[in-house]
Design a protein around this nucleic acid. Structure first.
Length: 528
DNA sequence: AGCACA
């Protein structure tokens, strides 16, 4: 026998097989094209196309071994290489003797999608980001990610093939928005096919796999670092020191997040001393100051990844600020010192309180969710609305009453402790760790804006495109409790992330029902 | 351009 010692795995010296491995195919290559290619040599009885992370490999199986041999032999000596769509195709014997699962790859609609994320490494796209992206089309039951030879892939399980199909149609070939990715990542496009699986077997919640239907699944320790989507490496670097001041960024901010809303949420864990809101790169951020570190730690642990509103809206991401004492210059809609003598002021009763005019200087800025030492300083002058008046209510929007109900709530301190049931009109919904998915696992939440791709650049006016699913109409009163909404949440990780963040997000043009549309629920604040 | 959903 020929020596096999030290033989490289892929050589033309491989033993013949009636299965041929083809590579360097155009990624859109079809089964028909492969059959055409092989037809002169024999009968192709099976194919498997779109193989590999780049979808540029395939297998063909001839009815007879000699047919495969004749094809390989022909092209081995031919001056004309095998081609598909003008691309040279490389052939060799497969190291398997038959194709399994042949017809299923990518063709048959399934509730599970196989997603290849091109141009990234596994650490670049968190499972939360994937969840966010795919949740726009329906309840995502499970996600499993893995790295294969050539790329980072994910299996995304929906409840049914139709939902999966809508996600596939909308997202295949699209890119994940840059703002959801670490800055170093370039283009990051999705290739999506149907999986042959129908139900993923997720054994634990981790940074690689998630079962959003099972609250009892053990949580892998690696999943509890609470760093969320912001690209913290698995080595645990960039672990911020704890602080009594939390930096909050908010994902999917379809509703206003006002000072008062924030205070309501964070007050559940202790006295909120000061809050400052600012914008960074069209993203919303806020600093929340507690009297002590322990309170901040508790709040961070409990709130990280949770959504302020039911339906996946306004998901909180928390980190520790490097600040320990915010220097709030004025009390208005953007910054507030609750330790000042007028803690209960309504926004429209605010006066500009020059608490500490001389010390008016802060040095906080933030980039991409992380604070930056001393770049362009940001001062909480909160001067967007001169005179401290509320921003004007937009014309033609019936019933928009900025935060009146919130005011009432947030003036009564500590409506509940972290473990109690949340006051029904509190905006905050999912407090406790492990308090996830309190409803029956069989009840997924309503889909959010089906067909509306989070990757699309459509403006938020598409709210009105799906009236039956508009967040406004999902709430006839104050936002319903997150608990009981059927939304899975994972301690320190992502609860439901249903709605669609827009790259072009601009909260100032936001959720406005069409003229004469359904009035918003009381208690749901609006941007105006 | 090198073997098929962890």
């Amino acid at each position: 026998m020929a020596s096999t010692a030290g033989q490289p795995q892929f050589r033309y010296t491989q033993p013949p097989s009636k299965v041929l491995h083809l590579r360097n195919l155009p990624w859109e290559c079809t089964e028909e094209e492969l059959i055409e290619l092989g037809k002169p040599f024999g009968k192709i009885i099976n194919t498997k196309v779109n193989v590999g992370a780049n979808r540029n490999q395939a297998f063909v199986e001839f009815a007879d071994l000699n047919q495969a041999i004749s094809m390989v032999s022909y092209y081995a000596s031919s001056s004309e290489p095998a081609q598909v769509r003008g691309k040279t195709v490389y052939l060799q014997y497969s190291n398997r003797q038959e194709i399994v699962n042949s017809k299923n790859t990518g063709d048959v609609a399934s509730n599970v999608l196989l997603v290849t994320i091109e141009g990234v490494e596994a650490g670049d796209v968190s499972i939360d980001v994937l969840h966010l992206v795919f949740s726009a089309f329906g309840f995502v039951h499970k996600i499993a990610t893995f790295e294969k030879s050539a790329g980072f892939q994910a299996l995304v399980q929906f409840s049914d093939p139709n939902t999966a199909t809508s996600a596939k149609n909308a997202l295949d070939g699209r890119s994940i928005p840059r703002y959801l990715l670490p800055e170093h990542v370039g283009l990051c496009s999705l290739r999506i096919t149907f999986s042959a699986h129908n139900d993923l077997n997720v054994k634990f919640q981790s940074h690689r796999s998630r079962d959003y239907t099972n609250p009892y699944l053990p949580v892998a320790p690696s999943a509890i670092d609470g760093t969320g989507q912001f690209g913290i490496g698995p080595d645990g670097k960039r672990r911020e020191p704890e602080s009594n001041v939390l930096l909050a960024s908010i994902e999917n901010m379809q509703y206003a997040v006002t000072l008062d809303v924030l205070r309501s949420v964070f007050t559940a864990f202790g006295t909120v001393q000061k809050i400052a809101i600012f914008e960074k790169n069209a993203g919303f951020q806020a600093l929340i100051q507690y009297p002590d570190v322990a309170t901040a730690v508790t709040a961070k642990e409990a709130l990280e990844g949770h959504c302020i509103y039911d339906g996946g809206f306004c998901k909180l991401h928390l980190s520790y600020s490097r600040h320990t004492d915010l220097n709030v210059k004025v009390n208005n809609d953007r910054s507030r010192d609750y330790t000042s003598p007028n803690p209960g002021l309504l926004p429209n009763q605010l006066s500009i309180l020059g608490q500490q005019p001389s010390a008016f200087q802060t040095t906080v800025s933030a980039v991409g969710g992380m604070q930056v030492p001393q770049s362009s300083s940001l001062v909480y002058s909160g001067n967007n609305y001169a005179g401290g008046a509320l921003p004007p209510v937009q014309d033609g929007v019936a019933g928009v009453q900025p935060v009146q109900d919130w005011q009432l709530n947030q003036l009564s301190p500590h409506p509940q402790g972290p473990n109690g049931n949340v006051h029904s009109s509190l905006p905050f919904l999912g407090f406790a760790r492990n308090q996830m998915y309190m409803t029956t696992a069989a009840t997924p939440p309503p889909p959010v804006f089906p067909g509306q791709s989070p990757l699309s650049l459509a403006p938020y006016t598409s709210h009105t495109t799906f009236p039956g699913l508009s967040p406004m109409q999902n709430h006839s009163g104050p936002p319903s409790s997150y608990i009981g909404s059927g939304i899975t949440s994972l301690a320190g990780q992502g609860p439901y992330l249903g709605a669609s963040p827009m790259p072009s997000y601009n909260h100032q043009q936001m959720p406005m029902p069409a003229g004469g549309g359904v009035p918003p629920p009381s208690g749901v604040p609006y941007y105006t």
